[in-house]
Design a protein around this nucleic acid. Sequence first.
DNA 1: AGGTTAGTGACAGCCGCTGACAGTTGACAA
DNA 2: TTGTCAACTGTCAGCGGCTGTCACTAACCT
Lengths: 208, 208
Amino acid sequence: METLRERKKRRTRESLLRAALELFTSQGYERTTVDEIAEAVDVSQRTFFRYFAGKEDVALAVQKMTEAAFVAAVRARPAHEAPMQALRQAFLEGWDTIRETVESVVPVELYLRMYRTIESTPALLAAHLRRSAATEETIARVLAEREGVDVDTDPRPRLAVAVFGGVIRVSERRWCTSEDFGLESIRTLTAEYLDQVGSALTGNWRTG
Amino acid sequence: METLRERKKRRTRESLLRAALELFTSQGYERTTVDEIAEAVDVSQRTFFRYFAGKEDVALAVQKMTEAAFVAAVRARPAHEAPMQALRQAFLEGWDTIRETVESVVPVELYLRMYRTIESTPALLAAHLRRSAATEETIARVLAEREGVDVDTDPRPRLAVAVFGGVIRVSERRWCTSEDFGLESIRTLTAEYLDQVGSALTGNWRTG
DNA sequence: AGGTTAGTGACAGCCGCTGACAGTTGACAA
DNA sequence: TTGTCAACTGTCAGCGGCTGTCACTAACCT
C-alpha cells in the first residue's frame, strides 16, 4: 500500500522525467535548461535536483531501467547456456518485454526517440557509454559466477562481455541512424551482427 | 623556422597542459579549478579557454595525441596483413614509440599517471570513452578502405574495430588497477588478451 | 489536536564556460 | 626606425548547472 506522500513523490518524479524527455527530444538536450523542466512541472529548480542527480541523470533514467532489466534477464538465464548465448537471449528478451519495462513511466515512443537524442548529443553519448561500461562490469561478474571462474584472475568474462557490448553498440548506432527505427529492427539487426562477429574477426574480407 | 609569437604560444599551451596534468594527478580532477590552472601559469582564465575547449579537453589532450599516432600507425600497416593483425601490430607499435610521441610535450611519467586519473574519474572516463568511440569510427573507415569494402553496407569493419576496442579497454582497465604499472606490462597484457578473445567467445569455460 | 518528520521554495554562492571590448605585443613593410 | 596591422591577452559581465542553508508547509503518527 502506497501512502499519499509516496504517491505525490512518484508523481512529481515521473512528471519531471516525462517533461524532460519531451523537451530534450523536441528542442534538443543542450537547448533545454533545468529551469525550463522545473517550470514545466511547476516546481522549483531546487526540487528537480532533489529527484535527479543532474541533467544527464534524468536524460538517462529510462535507459537505466532497461539496463537493469537486461542484467536481471542475464541472471535468469538457464545455467546450461553458453555465456555468449545467454547474453544474446537476455538481450533479445529485453527488447521483447520493453513495453512492460518502460510504459509504466513513459511512453515507449518517447523512449525510442530519446535513444536518438542520446546518440546525437556528445555529452549524453559520453555518459551513456560510461554507464554501459559500468553495466558490463556487473554482467562480467554475473557471468563469472555462473561459470564458476574467478573474475579477478580470469579475463574471459570481461572479454566476452566487452565483445558483446561492442557489437551491441555498433547495432545501436546503426539502428539510430537507420530509417526503419522500430522495435523489431533492433532485434533482427543485433541478432544478425552477433552472427557476423566471427567472420569479421577471422578471415580475409576480400574473398567475399 | 618558428616565429617568436608561435614559440610563445606553444610555450603557454604546454605550460598550461603540464600544470593541468600535474594538478589533476596530484590533487584530483574535480578538486582542481580552471582558475587554479591558469594561476599556476600566470595567465587569465579567459586565456586558458583560448587554448583548450574546456577542462576535459586539457585532461585528454595527450591521449588525443597518442590516439592520432595509433590511427596513423594503422594507416601505415602493410596491405597484406589481416585486419585484426594490423590493428594489433599498430597498437603495440604505438606503445613502443610512446616516448617520441609524448615526451616533447609532457614527461611520459605524467602521461601514465594521468591514465589512472582518467580511469578513476567518472566525468573523464565518460569523455575518454566517447573519444574512443569516435576514433573507432575513424579506424573502421581506414580498415574498410584497406580491404576494399563499403563501410556503410558491410558491418564487418565496425564490428572488428569494436571488438578490438573492447579488448583494449579491458586491458587498460586491468592495467590501471594493476601493480606493475609500466610500459612493458600494458604491451604484454594487451597481446595476451587479444590471444584469449577467441577462447572467451567460443567455448565452455568450465572445462578449463 | 499536536508534535514529528519529509518534502519544498527561496536565496546565496561556486564553478565551468562564453561574448564583448579594450589594451598590449609581435610581425612586417615603408 | 617607425608606423600599421594583426594576433594575443586581460577584464568584465553574464548564463547555466549544481550545492548548502534555512525557514516553511504538508503529511504522518500517536
